[in-house]
């Protein structure tokens, strides 16, 4: 990644908060080696069926400047139509796990993570694939959500912006998942760049034609963007709204861990809408409301996601922010 400063005098401002991003043009290498995975969670069926389809007939993934390679991340979970066999694959890509030496007694997903890392990584090395699309479904009403690590990833923010403007059949909010300095544990973190697509609501183990159509539309839009980018198209600076993860909220639980209250009917399906201080979050089976007592509005997402009961997450609290993203262009030889 090379930063070209147009007016030279801006050098001294770099690194301060007042930098005018519109004055920058950031150059990236083209994205030539691209992979698409669909079954990181084996019961999120839009991706499972699209990846299987593309393995048989990859023409849809071809563009002038590259061809994306489809692959199945977790075939054993897919066969059983479960999220995972031994542990969540999409939490298994920390360097520590990928480089651990324990062989033989390993959990299936750790073994798979290491294999996938060898194929499309290794994470952090110069040989990694350029870009990975990771397809997911959620039981939450999140629309066609684009999951990015952070807005510092300018190339992916441009991609997200392009998708928002070009795929308009569903809401396409941007979810920024990086919390602090924590290393990403997600599958797409082994490539140079990654984007996770989170389409819902769709029950686990079910294919809905509408969700599948949105997923397919998003993937095609991402591939179109990469093709334009690879051809040297300059993408100007812009401002964009995105939701940044603040914290995760668990269900109210009894001392023995049992859920004592469920998502309030007023919050259900309201992903990305503001939750204001005093608004109800949960409801007990006796009909008592539990309200949000924070000081400022938050924007809940992953509300009532089926897979997150065991992770002790009733919803994720987000803040809505506007970001300024500098112009980018591919560095063509």
């Amino acid at each position: 990644m090379v930063t070209l400063r147009r007016p030279l005098m801006l050098i001294c401002l770099a690194g301060t908060e007042q930098v005018d991003q519109t004055l920058f043009l950031i150059m990236f290498k083209p994205l030539k080696r691209v992979v698409v995975t669909g079954d990181t969670h084996g019961n999120e069926m839009s991706g499972v069926y699209l990846a299987k389809h593309w393995l048989k007939n990859p023409s849809e993934l071809q563009r002038e400047t590259f061809s994306a390679t489809p692959f199945l991340g977790n075939p054993r979970a897919t066969e059983k139509i479960v999220r995972y066999v031994d542990q969540d694959l999409n939490r298994s890509f920390k360097t520590e796990i990928l480089t651990s030496s324990s062989e033989g007694d390993e959990l299936y997903e750790i073994k798979r993570a290491k294999e996938i890392n060898q194929l499309y990584g290794p994470k952090g090395s110069t040989q990694t694939y350029d870009f990975m699309i990771d397809m997911h479904n959620t039981t939450s009403n999140m629309g066609a959500c684009l999951i990015v690590d952070s807005t510092e990833n300018h190339l992916i923010m441009h991609m997200a912006n392009y998708v928002q403007k070009n795929y308009t059949l569903a809401k396409t909010p941007i979810y920024l998942y990086k919390l602090g300095d924590e290393e990403s544990y997600a599958i797409d973190s082994i490539c140079k760049y990654g984007l996770a697509l989170e389409v819902g609501p769709q029950p686990q183990g079910v294919v809905r034609a509408d969700a599948l159509k949105h997923m397919r539309g998003l993937v095609n839009s991402v591939l179109d963007f990469i093709d334009l980018f690879n051809k040297g198209t300059a993408f100007p600076a812009f401002e964009i709204e995105a939701y940044k993860l603040l914290a995760r909220e668990d269900y109210p639980r009894s001392s023995d861990g049992e859920i004592m209250a469920i998502i309030h009917p007023h919050l259900q399906d309201k992903d990305f809408d503001p939750l204001n201080p005093g608004d109800p979050m949960f409801q007990t089976l006796d009909g008592k409301d539990i309200i949000y007592e924070g000081d400022t509005p938050v924007y809940p997402t992953f509300i009532n996601e089926g897979a997150y009961y065991e992770k002790k997450i009733a919803f994720a609290k987000m803040e809505k922010l506007t970001f300024s993203i500098p112009a980018i262009q591919a560095q063509t030889e």
Binding site: T139, G306, Y309
Partner: peptide, 14 residues
């Protein structure tokens, strides 16, 4: 229904 398996919705429960 409709309710995803592994999920409880207040409206469906009601």
């Amino acid at each position: 229904g409709p309710q995803s398996h592994g999920v409880v919705r207040a409206d469906i429960l009601d």
